[in-house]
Design a protein around this nucleic acid. Structure first.
Lengths: 233, 233
DNA sequence: CTATGTCAACTAACATGTTAGTTGTGCGAT
DNA sequence: ATCGCACAACTAACATGTTAGTTGACATAG
């Protein structure tokens, strides 16, 4: 059984909030970036030594990660980084789809000219970033678009909810090999979503965002054959 | 400032799982049943004394309740039972609607004759229970119907997800005065949902479940004027 | 060589001691 | 009487000690 390499943990000073929060963020980052490999076991004492904290905040952080599905705690035995399972990815994808569809529906029903303008400006930015092949910034802009749509609902907890439910997806996404032309396709999907919102075409917007979210799921399925070492079931 | 009466906590032996889990269930029950009143502060030591456990499991339980929105933890200061806010209820209702709509959509798309039969049997049971005016059993049967629909998705975590997101709603629901004829209306809403699933009418099923979930929200709005002492904002 | 039982090492869970931040209270100054 | 400030009491957060359940290694019997 491999053991997660605690030396890969970033320093706590990179984060804010309570000690527990920072430990949580540090470990979560290590898991999502695959510095902590799926299936490896986490030794609390290693983490404590590396971060210079006691077991309390580490225990609390691991409990939270467990509820997010990123680690498996076996009572009285040990804690392991959860393996990526297609079943878990499909579940997370289902939840994410449910929330994104609801948000997009709301956006289509209640859109204001201001929101449409912001979405269109965001889309133009995306087009520019494709030409630059600036993937980092593209992802940031992509996220911003989804946030604009979510913000129309006025639900403060929605972004963090979507975030929590996307943990497995985010981790799996990192293992995918980039696909040529995928960025251009993504922008096209975004355009369809924004167009439907502008027309207040509720069903059109729902279908468009659903297609978009499912694109990712479809592409993730390929991991099952590509990286069977990291995927269970 | 009122203080939550720890003597109202049920005994831990009524629950199963780890000590933390049982403490969590006990406190959650007290909050949802309004034995712990919204706004009152929870004294860890009282809870420890009553349940004969140390502060660790109590702290963990309260952390979890905090993430469910049932208590507010003020760092270095205190923990209070969260007041019911219309904003929180609306958010929870939004999340619940998103999940239930997604589940119902899935049920309509992939329904089998067996599922339809089970749903129809459940509906007949509901009709009988109206005549008996057996509210307890009616609620159980109501819940069972939603579970049948959710089970068609095959998503293991869906019920617990909906449950977590319904905490605020469940608490508020208890304060509502029963409305004559409401049960019959509920059955009618259920019938529409089941009919649409049987016809594989996706949009019809979505609309029907949405109407159903929103009925509750609408009725909850009245609390804002009826019980302003328990509602904030 | 395999199956099984024992035991030591390890771990999460729980208990308890300690620290530091917040809040209200009362006293004194104005 | 009111404002401000110091202080005491209380709390969550954190550190650390203790308990009990799990696991795998190893020895031993078949």
């Amino acid at each position: 059984m491999t053991i997660a390499d605690a030396s890969k943990l970033p320093s706590l000073s990179d984060f804010s909030g309570s000690l527990s929060d920072r430990v949580h963020a540090a470990i979560k980052g290590a898991i999502l970036s695959l510095d902590f490999l799926p299936g490896s076991s986490i030794r609390k004492t290693d983490v404590c030594d590396r971060l210079n904290v006691s077991r309390s905040p580490v225990a609390e952080a691991l409990t939270k990660l467990s509820s997010e599905g990123l680690v498996d705690i076996v009572p009285q035995s040990g804690t392991r980084v959860s393996r990526i399972s297609m079943a878990a990815i499909r579940e997370d994808s289902f939840f994410r789809e449910a929330l994104e569809v609801a948000a997009t529906r709301h956006a289509a029903l209640h859109r204001t000219p201001d929101v449409v303008a912001r979405l269109k400006r965001n889309l133009e930015m995306q087009k520019l970033l494709i030409v630059d092949v600036d993937k980092e910034d593209f992802i940031r802009t992509d996220d911003a678009m989804h946030e604009i749509i979510m913000s129309t609902t006025g639900m403060a907890r929605l972004p963090s909810m979507v975030d929590a439910v996307s943990a497995q997806i985010d981790r799996a996404r990192l293992m995918m090999v980039p696909e040529p032309g995928r960025l251009a396709d993504t922008v096209d999907e975004h355009r369809k979503i924004i167009d439907a919102i502008e027309r207040q075409d509720v069903h059109g917007a729902e279908d468009a965002i659903r297609d978009h979210v499912r694109q990712l799921l479809t592409r993730l399925q390929s991991l099952e054959t590509d990286r069977p070492d990291l995927i269970t079931s």
